[in-house]
Design a binder for these strands. Structure first.
Lengths: 338, 338
DNA sequence: CTGAAAGCGCTTACAG
DNA sequence: CTGAAAGCGCTTACAG
């Protein structure tokens, strides 16, 4: 990439450099027939050289419709989460940089998508999710954010992420590490569970799950309630009547949570029971949500990179290139809760 | 609005109908000088009649840059809420219909906004919010969603909304109605509190507040914890030892919550204490969040209409018209919690 | 295979 | 105040 020139290079610039007409340049750039391979190669090389970017506006003007990308959301209860807000923001930005216009679609409006959008980014998979197949039938190029058995997709190394978090807890001397997660049926959550298991088995420790219900109004509230309930029952079972909380000998010393939101709920419950973090119990999350997770030891995913890659892949899908899956790395952020 | 025609009307269509040149149409549409008021009115009328929508592509092609609208967010802890996700979606849609491109900005990146965006929509006001003044100085037209002392803005009848909810509780025979709200410093939350007071005073009842802290990771979790704490203390104060919950004689019979999320937390706390809703305690919310508030008696705000109006106002701001504030009505939705 | 030209919808100097 | 014309960057018949 050369320096950002004052004026973006146009098709004319390429034509001039190649000594051909703009028609040929257009044909070469768009993979249209009716041009010799040699010339095409030459033109493509020049366009790469000067970092040519087509004008979305001009293309729209001709085609009569904007390069609208439908962002198809997941189920309502899932999509209303902080993580998605961040993803929206970055997708919007990344699409705009490519001259594309983002428009949101609820997942159950997928049928209306092909009318107004020429491509789609699929978010929030769920059991029985038929959007990808449906769009595929209608030849709408699309990219999925998350794991996908086929087609274009960009995902995270979820399994490795929870492995890192759990191994970190082991390294800190924790021996009774509980996995806190809901929706274990959900594919990527399941991957996180597997990462937890990887680390536990490696250390020869036994697994223990705090499994949360599937339908959830609020992840933090849910994890709070479940952990609280557990702690209350532990207190009741204690031998000291009156002083209902005997947490000197907790059956766990760490909570590896599937998301930051779950971790936040757990932290609140521990706090309300006067349990020291990380002294008595260490807590880890996943996502690294800004502001909310500032204190939390967690697995950072680069949401901006996810959005960026999704848009790049969408470009390839539109160009008819073969499908591919990209897995982005994650990073352990050690902070104050472990 | 006429039926969606196969081909969108262009400036030529208007010119033909008005019997003028496209140049005059363009001038009229863009509020440019050099055209008689009579002609301008006439052209504007026709354009309204045929529901003319300018081609963003054509405009971009000329200006060299897209009609980017910066959507400036509020503070992180506020913006990561379901309400904002819904607002984003509708704003994106509404902007797209007008050929504008949405791009998100964190509130602390407002300084970077004028470089890439020609207008802005401001979300999530907060104490010391200087964005509006800052953009005003730099002549960036903007519209605020929420109350605003000056400039363009679109808000809700918040005060009337909570008045409606509270009056409804009174009509249902409730006499000890608690207002549950956080951030009472926030302008629009304060309006909701005032609506609550209006209804209570009208009924000659005494007010009682459950005031939540300002900095909140999660609204539902926070209201849950505070209500739970209160209920536990009530139980402890009871005369029946062992059976620590004596809720036959609660000091309140209704909770008027400032948001749906707060209401959801309260419902969870009541449920965990075995308190019947609405038999023993009625609960109301505000916002009518999809899915989350399906069972809740709440005050519905039309988020789509808010987005729509914001975009219309932005158009007027761009056209240099005088600032105005629009207040949208709200509606009481009586459901199962009251 | 290659090029000259028209045209997508709009704005804006430039003439009247 | 009003209009004819050029041009934004690109695609696509239409001729060679």
């Amino acid at each position: 990439m050369t320096r950002a020139s004052a004026k973006a290079a146009t098709i004319h610039e390429i034509a001039k450099r190649a000594g051909v007409s703009i028609a040929s340049v257009s044909r070469a750039l768009n993979g249209k027939p009716g041009i010799s391979e040699g010339l095409r190669e030459h033109i493509l090389a020049i366009s790469r050289e000067i970092d040519y970017r087509p004008s979305a506006a001009a293309r729209q003007l001709i085609s009569g419709k904007a390069a609208v990308v439908g962002i198809s959301l997941g189920r309502k209860d899932i999509e209303l989460r902080p993580y998605y807000i961040l993803l929206y923001q970055h997708l919007t930005l990344a699409l705009h940089r490519q001259g594309m216009v983002p428009v949101f679609f609820a997942h159950d409006q997928t049928a209306r998508l092909p009318d107004s959008a020429g491509a789609a980014i699929l978010l929030g998979e769920f059991p029985g999710d038929a959007r990808e197949a449906w769009l595929g039938e209608r030849q709408v190029p699309c990219v999925r954010v998350g794991e996908s058995p086929s087609g274009f997709s960009v995902g995270l190394d979820e399994r490795h992420g929870l492995y890192l978090a759990t191994r970190h807890l082991v390294e800190r001397g924790r021996r009774h590490i509980v996995f806190v997660g809901g929706e274990l049926a959900s594919p990527h959550k399941h991957l996180r569970l597997m990462g937890y298991r990887d680390a536990l088995h490696e250390a020869g420790l036994e697994e223990r799950l705090l499994s949360l219900p599937h339908e959830v109004v609020d992840a933090s509230l849910t994890s709070y309630r479940y952990l609280n309930r557990w702690l209350v029952s532990l207190g009741k079972a204690s031998t000291e009547p009156g002083h209902d909380l005997a947490f000197d000998n907790l059956p766990f010393d760490a909570l590896a949570c599937a998301t930051d939101e779950l971790a936040l709920g757990c932290l609140a419950a521990l706090e309300d029971h006067g349990i020291g973090v990380p002294q008595q119990v260490a807590v880890t999350g996943f996502d690294d949500l800004p502001t909310l997770a500032d204190q939390l030891t967690t697995v950072r995913q680069d949401i901006e990179a996810v959005a960026e890659r999704a848009v790049v892949l969408l470009g390839e899908a539109l160009a008819g290139k073969p499908a591919q899956h990209v897995t982005l790395p994650v990073e352990l952020m050690v902070r104050q809760t472990s």
